[in-house]
Amino acid sequence: MQCDYFDAHRCRSCSLMGTAYDDQVAAKQERCVAALLGAGVSLQWESPFTSRPAGFRNKAKLVVAGTRSDPTVGILDGSGQGVDLRHCGLYEPGLAQAVQQVPSLLADLGMVPYDVPRRSGELKHVLLTHSPAGELMIRFVLRSEGQVTRIRTGLSRIYELLPGVRVVSVNLQPIHAAVLEGPQEVLLSQHSDLPMPVNDVSLRLRPGSFFQTNTEVAAGLYRQARAWLAETDPASLWDLYCGVGGFALHNLLRPNGSARDVLGVELSAEAVESARASAAEMPGAPRFVTGDAAALLRDRPAPEVVVVNPPRRGIGDLAPWLEASGVQQALYSSCHVDSLARDLTRMPSLRPVRARLFDMFPQTPHLEVLTLLQRR
């Protein structure tokens, strides 16, 4: 992939830009193998699941800068000034078209960009999510409530310029810090969630819930998990750090069509509401609860299989619990192979037997690894 922004040193976020895509994937595979070998793990690796090198992102996290009449959307430079990246080549086609309309929309709405060096202004970020069905979620991150009415009265203009918009909300982030969003969300649209079709499951994303950045690779990740679990056909499954329920909802049914006993646990209440909304449209009776998995499940009888999909820091206190739990099989989906390797050393009774790299983030060193563990 060639990028004018990268070549002009306006944006260097994609640190592997200019490296042949096959070489990127090979280097990531080598890194994964080396990290697990360093933890004493040697196992069967499937062929990497690759992505489109460009046009793959379903999300745009746009820092807003510039002026009311001439806003920029993209990132900030070292001095806190806006760098406009509206033509970034990473966005999937429908999202790319929407991003290019955002500066005109902001000017029409009369939004005042937040000036980081001066700590003045209101609009900090615009967050966009695009679904395979062509629908959009747009979130305006504001410093205060003062401009909510301006956005509310401009809804017709938002729908005119971004015809795929389904969800519109405002997030309030009042502090001066490098924090993307705050705890308060104000819904402005009739709809409160964005349907995200993934394989044969429709995940419903609410404004504060997390979903992977690369829909096609996420779909492959869920298919791989389903295929591996179908080989042993567990009757019960816990999906920990379940987010919007992707792993749980892809594994509600056993190969014979009967329902599994499925429980999902997640700290984010918004994500749990998303998972419950998706589950209401599907067979079976999965349960989704809000809470810390290590504390919530400590005294419950373990299921046959546990799926974990933690943040970059890994599973922490959950590792000793899994080691002692008696769980016969586990799937560990990791976005940081070093924390995965560290966690595996804390669970010696759960032996990694298969793994696969999923290239969720081309042009960067970031990656996702799915590992199948079996009790010795």
Rank of each mutant, 00 (worst) to 15 (best):
R356T: 12
F210Q: 02
M17A: 15
L237S: 05
C242I: 05
D292G: 09
T371I: 09
P197N: 12
A277V: 12
Q101E: 15
E160T: 13
Y241H: 13
V308W: 01
L62Y: 04
V25C: 08
Q100I: 07
P348S: 04
L136F: 03
D4T: 12
E216M: 12
G18P: 15
L296D: 00
N256Q: 14
S131I: 03
S144R: 05
P207G: 04
S278T: 15
P53R: 14
A294R: 03
G89H: 13
R254Y: 07
F211I: 14
L340G: 11
D7K: 13
D317H: 06
V170C: 12
V64S: 01
A177R: 14
L350T: 07
P311A: 06
G89N: 14
V307H: 03
A280F: 06
V201Y: 02
C242A: 09
R298Q: 14
E231D: 12
R57C: 03
D108R: 07
S268L: 11
G66C: 07
S334A: 05
V168R: 04
D115V: 05
G314D: 06
V64Q: 08
L36N: 00
G164Y: 13
T215Q: 10
A269E: 14
W228I: 09
W228L: 04
I175L: 12
D343E: 08
G257D: 07
Q29W: 00
G89T: 10
V126N: 06
P310C: 06
F247H: 01
L263F: 05
G246F: 14
P352A: 12
R276Q: 13
G110D: 03
L357Q: 03
Q100E: 11
A133P: 03
A269V: 10
P303Q: 05
Y332V: 06
V73E: 05
E266A: 13
W321N: 07
D299W: 09
P183E: 12
V308C: 01
Q212A: 05
L85V: 06
A178R: 07
V168S: 06
F6G: 12
P174I: 05
P71M: 09
P53Q: 15
L296S: 02
R287V: 06
L95A: 00
L123G: 01
L161I: 10
P113G: 11
L16T: 03
R300C: 03
P301M: 10
S131P: 00
A248C: 09
